[in-house]
């Protein structure tokens, strides 16, 4: 029967039949070309400008930018803010994901909406909220002055603003993963006599470690890179209340472009690291999914 079909009369493998549900090759490459041009224009070029401008006057000038005491102070302040905000938000994220992912209770959606709040408000408004609370004319302003506590235009305000804009990240990454895994393993552990903490550390945490890591990386990247909210609560005092993004703004406005882009390149590298970790997490979860499927296929 097969031999009577005429289209296999050529020597060698038959020509592949063009898939009917697909565009002609020319159109395909046009689409690819337009997309890559769009992505290249809006993504790759700005990224190239960061590194190109940082190294414009050579590696010497690049490294000199980091000998500026204001730059070092800014780096220290950024690291401090991240070192406080990220662990706190990680604990919050785990706690919120546990409460929302493992249990059913009334008011869940309100809680989720509150957690998503920093994403829906402008960073400037986030900073404004803290100024209205702790600023000179704010709600607690007079009390703070009387006790000689400075929050706004000082380091504590910066840390608070950083905590506010970054607290959803870990929770949002953990929650879908926790929900997808269900309660089975935890319930089994409890029925075997494990305490709450044992269940958490030995059962839950290993299962969600990739989502947790990615959430922490995202939280950290945002904490170190936050500009709008911190700009509002900081006093822009060089060497004291400037984080790295604020320092970048300060030296850029002074036309010291190499200095600005050198510090910016550090943050850009952090951004690229974040993207790399995301790819790694996705690749790893794809691999474990494929392994699971192949196991199921065999049984």
């Amino acid at each position: 029967m097969a031999t009577s079909i005429p289209w296999n009369t050529r020597e060698g493998p038959a020509a592949p039949i063009a898939a009917p549900a697909s565009e002609p090759l020319g159109l395909r490459w046009t689409f690819i070309g337009i997309s890559l041009a769009f992505l290249g224009l809006f993504l790759l070029l700005p990224l190239a400008v960061v590194f190109g401008s940082a190294l414009e006057k050579g590696v010497g000038a690049y490294l000199d930018s980091f000998r500026d005491p204001d730059a070092l102070a800014a780096i220290r302040l950024t690291l401090l803010a991240a070192a406080i905000a990220v662990p706190l938000n990680m604990v919050f994220g785990i706690s919120a994901a546990w409460a929302l992912g493992k249990f059913d209770f009334k008011g869940k959606s309100i809680l989720i909406a509150l957690i998503d709040l920093p994403f829906s408000v402008s960073p400037v408004v986030s900073g404004l909220i803290y100024v209205l609370m702790f600023g000179l004319q704010g709600l607690l302003g007079p009390w703070l002055i009387a006790h000689n506590i400075r929050i706004i235009f000082a380091v504590p305000g910066i840390i608070l603003a950083t905590i506010f804009v970054t607290f959803p990240f870990v929770a949002r990454e953990l929650l879908p993963t926790l929900q997808a895994q269900g309660n089975d393993e935890e319930e089994a552990a409890v029925s075997l006599g494990a305490s709450g903490w044992q269940t958490f550390f030995h059962i839950t945490l290993p299962n969600v470690k990739w989502a947790l890591i990615y959430g922490v990386i995202l939280c950290n990247a945002r904490a170190m890179g936050e500009f709008g909210a911190v700009s509002v609560v900081s006093g822009h005092i060089r060497g004291l209340t400037n984080t790295m993004p604020l320092h970048i703004e300060a030296v850029y406005d002074d036309y010291q472009f190499v200095a600005a882009f050198s510090v910016a390149s550090l943050l850009a590298l952090l951004g690229l690291l974040t993207l790399a970790v995301k790819s790694l997490v996705e690749w790893s979860s794809r691999r474990s999914l494929a392994a699971l499927e192949s196991l199921e296929g065999k049984s």
Binding site: L39, L43, L44, P46, L47, V49, V50, S53, P123, A221, M224, G225, E226, F227, G228, P245, L246, I248, E249, Y252, F257, A260, F261, A264, L267, A268, G271, L272, T274, L275, A276, K278, S279
Partner: peptide
């Protein structure tokens, strides 16, 4: 992966590089 760059890159860095 690069599509996520605007999420990962700090806004100040994006701002000065676009301006330049």
């Amino acid at each position: 992966s690069m599509v996520d760059l605007p999420f990962a890159l700090p806004t100040a860095v994006a701002g000065i590089s676009l301006a330049t």
